[in-house]
Design a protein around this nucleic acid. Structure first.
Lengths: 193, 193
DNA sequence: CCTACCGATCGGTAGG
DNA sequence: CCTACCGATCGGTAGG
């Protein structure tokens, strides 16, 4: 019961952090959005940063879980990247307010959480690059710089989260396919002038 | 002379807005960074938001100028997109601190500047899409959704600004080429399973 | 879960 | 360009 109220507060916080940013969201704004006085929030949470911390790390964990799933698949590396992109979008969309807060607001974490978070993200990126590198070694991708390719791929997905609106939900898989096709086309082929 | 001091304040503000965000940057932080007391800032600027406003609109104008240049070029649409991407990166890098503030902090503008800025950006995107559409009509790009393609392309460039560090500057054109090749490859080719 | 309140800090002004 | 200061708002606590 306490837990449920905390969940409501956290989800509402994620939405406010996305819409106004962490620093520009006051505890009074948040309290009003969940029909409480500011002081009452502290019966459910220890402070403002706890909310950001949990939003960031829970989202990170969801992405790492997808990565683990895909790494364990017995398919070609083309399909791995394809699946990674598709599941990345799908996972992001399951909690689209958290993902935008997660992408931009983590820098407001204080130590030691800040370092821990940066570390988590770095590990995720390493594993993404490893999948790309294997694809290159197998000759299914052209020999791009994996750092450039990784950043370009992950970055190219980010607009979907900001652009997403529930009424567009039906066309989401189609959009995911379009993006995947553009990126994979670029990984597999050289430019033809 | 006054102008020059204002420029210094603005450039410093852009850096702080990028590093900490607009809302989390105080006028006292900014004053300290330019060796003034907070109150002295107001001899050069009218207020905090003026700084953000000028950073956002000046950056927008620089991008629109590039768009105009490219639109007037007498080359194929493949080259137009290629040039657009290359110049976009080049233009962004010429003032890399402003670009990140411009990308993420414009939402803190108040009306009527907020609407004006959103309008400017929308027009830029329309023109980008028009270049893509012409390419599709000419049969040089596959028939992707231009909205998806436009967002994916512009979004895929964004990591470079965050990731950029001066000591990496020499390899920037090479990175620009890599990104361009990935994206153009994706626009021109269908996935080959 | 609320009222009442804390010290700190915010953007900005007055006056010189 | 500074000292001195304003009212407003911040995150959070005490006490019930």
């Amino acid at each position: 019961m306490n837990k449920s109220k905390k969940e409501i507060i956290k989800i509402t916080a994620a939405r406010l952090f996305r819409d106004r940013g962490y620093a520009a969201t006051s505890m009074r704004d948040l309290a009003e959005a969940v029909n409480l006085k500011a002081s009452s929030l502290y019966n459910h949470i220890s402070g403002k940063e706890e909310l950001l911390q949990e939003i960031c790390f829970e989202t990170a964990k969801r992405f790492l879980k997808v990565m683990e799933e895909v790494e364990g698949m017995e398919v070609s590396n083309i399909e791995k990247i394809e699946t990674l992109i598709g599941l990345h979008i799908k996972t992001a969309m399951e909690d689209v307010t958290s993902i935008t807060a997660f992408n931009d607001e983590w820098r407001h974490l204080s130590e030691p959480d800040l370092s821990k978070f940066v570390q988590l993200r770095k590990r995720y990126e390493q594993r993404f690059k490893a999948v790309l590198q294997t694809g290159i070694d197998q000759g299914v991708f052209q020999a791009v710089d994996t750092t450039v390719a990784m950043h370009t791929i992950l970055s190219s997905l980010r607009w979907v989260y900001d652009w997403y609106q529930p009424e567009r939900a039906t066309s989401l898989p189609k959009i995911g396919d379009s993006i995947t096709r553009m990126i994979l086309g670029g990984l597999q082929n050289n430019i033809q002038k």
